[in-house]
Simulated scan of single mutants.
Amino acid sequence: MIRPVRSEIEAAGHLGHVYASRRAPVAGDPDTALRDPAVVLVHGIGVSHRYLRRLHGALAESVDTYSIDLPGFGATPRPDHTLPVADHASYILGAMEQLGVLDFVLVGHSMGAQFAIEAARQQPERIPYVVLMGPVVDSKRRTVAQQALALGRDSLFFESPSSNALVFSDYIRCGPSWYLKNLRVMMEYPTEQRIAEVAAPVLVVRGANDPVASADWCRRLAERATGRLAEIPGTGHVVQHNRSAEVAEAILSFAGLPGRATGAARQEFKA
């Protein structure tokens, strides 16, 4: 893996962190200036880039890869007010523009799927492909109690010790007050309506055992986006940590990017 380099970037009036793994240019290669689009990874509520590290590493073997810690998450300064989904999307777009990354495949996990949808709506010309991993919030389960129950089931029965350790240690760092403020934002965002306004092709990825992003919900989102659904067997909500190789393959194949293919994830594609 190309070791990520952290940059502290202020964009859209807020401060966040971007972790970049860029491939070195090949001397004398005329295609260096015509690189494939980069892949940008965005975390969900309460967490950070840390649970994206395995996926970041798998993707960085083939393409320029960036992971973002949004303002108020991970080790970034907390804004003086809760940001709506649109503001996080503006941060993603502004931060990547400052890094000179003008077009990219945008990948969001959980609440990060909402940020990805919104960024693709704001500047569709910059985002040729959108990938939503374990997207929220299921329109048939729109209460906090239902979401909490699903998350509890996931952590107890379908996650690995390492994924639980990453997620819950980040939750502690986030703190209950900031988490709950952002939870309200997450619950109010109409994912199923906004996804229909995304012009780019959309891939929805879920762990086959994920109780948070159900098969029915993910299938409905894919249909509204005229997208595709990929189910990764043997894992739950934090699919990108527990099955990083399969998820990386699904993303690269979907976006037509170079990479090593095993065929495991591709067999899971559904129209």
Rank of each mutant, 00 (worst) to 15 (best):
I2W: 00
I2C: 04
V5P: 00
I9D: 03
A12H: 05
A12P: 01
G13T: 12
G16T: 10
V18I: 10
S21N: 04
R22G: 06
A24P: 00
P25E: 09
V26H: 02
V26Y: 00
D29Q: 01
P30R: 06
P30C: 14
A33N: 05
V42A: 08
H43G: 11
G44H: 02
V47K: 01
L52Y: 04
H56E: 00
H56C: 05
G57S: 03
A58C: 11
A58K: 02
A58Q: 09
A60P: 03
T65A: 08
G74H: 06
G74N: 06
T76W: 05
P79V: 15
H81S: 14
H81Q: 07
L83R: 07
V85H: 03
A89K: 02
Y91S: 03
L93E: 01
A95P: 00
E97P: 00
L102Q: 04
F104G: 04
A113C: 10
Q114L: 08
A116L: 05
A119E: 03
A120D: 03
R126M: 13
R126C: 11
R126N: 12
Y129K: 13
V131E: 02
L132H: 07
G134Q: 04
P135A: 09
V137I: 13
S139N: 00
T143H: 04
L149H: 11
L151P: 03
D154I: 05
L156T: 09
F157A: 14
F158H: 15
F158D: 10
E159I: 03
S160R: 13
A165M: 10
L166W: 07
V167M: 14
I172A: 13
C174P: 01
P176H: 11
P176Y: 06
W178V: 12
E188R: 14
P190A: 15
T191C: 06
T191P: 00
E192C: 09
E197F: 12
E197V: 09
P201H: 13
V202Y: 00
L203M: 08
V205Q: 07
R206V: 11
A208Q: 06
D210I: 05
A215W: 02
A215S: 12
W217K: 04
R219G: 15
R220T: 13
A222K: 07
R224Q: 11
A225Y: 02
A225G: 09
R228A: 11
A230F: 05
P233A: 14
G234K: 09
H241N: 06
H241A: 10
A245D: 01
E246P: 01
E246D: 15
A248R: 02
E249I: 02
L252G: 09
F254L: 10
P258G: 14
G263L: 09
E268C: 05
F269W: 13
